[in-house]
C-alpha cells in the first residue's frame, strides 16, 4: 500500500522508531490478530493493536456487556450495557482507527469455531476467562502452527507467555493438563483490579506487535509473572516438554476437542 499524509501523521511517533519505519508500518497494516475474549485483557490489547495500525483484528466473545465489566473492560461504556461485547468493541476500535478492519465473532470458542476462525489470522491473543478455553486455544494454535500470546490476570497478579509452536514451550508444556472438575478447591469469584488486567493486556499487545514486526526477543520459553502489590515482575524459565501431549515428540492430541470443565462454575475473573 502507499502511505497517505494522514497515515504518516497518525503513525509518525512510531514510524520514527528504527524498529518500525515505513516497512514495519506496512507489515502491521498487512497483519491480522485474533483476540479470544473482549474483556479485561482483550480490551486494552485491542486498543493498542488498533491504534498501532494492525490491519485486521478479530474479536471472539459470546457475552454481553454488564455493569460489573466496566471497571476493567475499558472499551465498553455505561451505555453499552446489554450489547454484544464484540459489537461494542468493534465500534470503539473503528472510531479510534478506521483503517483497522474489526471482525466481530459473537460466539463462544469451541473446537468447531476455533478451527473456523484461527486460520485467517497471523497471531492469536488468549484473553479468555477459563482454563478449558485456555487449553483449547493452546492446542488449536499448536495444531495450526499459529503464534499465541497467553495472558492471565486475577486479583493483583498476572502471567504472560509467548508460544511459537514447534519453537518454544506451549501452555501444556508448562501446565500439562487442566484440572478435573472438583480439583479446583474453591470456586468463588476471585476478583480483579482493572489496572492489573490492563498491565497484562498491554503486554500481550506489545508481544504481538514484536512478533508481527519481527523485532526484539519474544517472551518465549519463560513465564512472566506480575505481582502488582509487590510491584514486581519475575521471569521464570520454562521449556518444551518432550512428553507434551500436544507439541511433544509423540503427541497424543491430534485433533481439537472441547473440554468441559464447566461443571464447577468457576470463573476467576
Amino acid at each position: 500500500m502507499s502511505f497517505t499524509k494522514e497515515h504518516i501523521a497518525r503513525y509518525s511517533r512510531q514510524l520514527i522508531l528504527p524498529e518500525i519505519g515505513l516497512p514495519g508500518q506496512q507489515r502491521l497494516q498487512e497483519a491480522s490478530v485474533l483476540l479470544i475474549g473482549a474483556g479485561g485483557l482483550g480490551c486494552p490489547a485491542a486498543l493498542y493493536l488498533a491504534a498501532a495500525g494492525v490491519g485486521r483484528l478479530g474479536l471472539v466473545d459470546a457475552d454481553a456487556v454488564s455493569l460489573s465489566n466496566l471497571h476493567r473492560q475499558v472499551l465498553h461504556a455505561t451505555a453499552d450495557i446489554g450489547r454484544s461485547k464484540v459489537e461494542s468493541a468493534r465500534e470503539k476500535l473503528t472510531a479510534l482507527n478506521p483503517e483497522t478492519e474489526v471482525v466481530a465473532y459473537h460466539a463462544r470458542l469451541d473446537a468447531a469455531t476455533a478451527k473456523s476462525f484461527l486460520p485467517a489470522y497471523d497471531v492469536v491473543l488468549d484473553g479468555s476467562d477459563n482454563l478449558a478455553t485456555r487449553y483449547l486455544v493452546n492446542d488449536a494454535c499448536v495444531l495450526l502452527g499459529k503464534p499465541l500470546i497467553y495472558g492471565g490476570a486475577v486479583q493483583w497478579r498476572g502471567q504472560l507467555m509467548v508460544i511459537r509452536p514447534g519453537q518454544s514451550a506451549c501452555f501444556r508444556c508448562v501446565f500439562p493438563e487442566p484440572p478435573q472438575p472438583g480439583e479446583i478447591p474453591d470456586c468463588q469469584a476471585a476478583g480483579i483490579l482493572g489496572a492489573t488486567a490492563g498491565v497484562i493486556g498491554t503486554l500481550m499487545a506489545q508481544e504481538a506487535l514484536k512478533l508481527l514486526l519481527g523485532t526484539g526477543q519474544p517472551l518465549e520459553n519463560q513465564l512472566l509473572t506480575y505481582d502488582a502489590l509487590a510491584g514486581a515482575f519475575r521471569r521464570v524459565p520454562v521449556r518444551r516438554d518432550p512428553d507434551c501431549a500436544v507439541c511433544g515428540v509423540h503427541p497424543s492430541i491430534h485433533a481439537l476437542v472441547s473440554i468441559d470443565l464447566m461443571s464447577c462454575s468457576h470463573k476467576e475473573a
Binding site: 476467562d129 482454563l131 492471565g152 490476570a153 501452555f171 488486567a197 521464570v236 516438554d241 468457576h266 476467576e268
Partner: peptide
C-alpha cells in the same frame, strides 16, 4: 522440578522455591 528430579529434587539452605499455578482469568 519436572525437568529435575520431580519431588525428589534436592534442595539446600538458601535455595529459592516458587509455587506457580496457572492463571485462568482474564475476561
Amino acid at each position: 522440578i519436572r525437568f529435575l528430579q520431580g519431588d525428589q529434587t534436592a534442595v539446600k539452605d538458601g535455595d529459592d522455591v516458587s509455587i506457580i499455578p496457572a492463571i485462568a482469568g482474564g475476561a
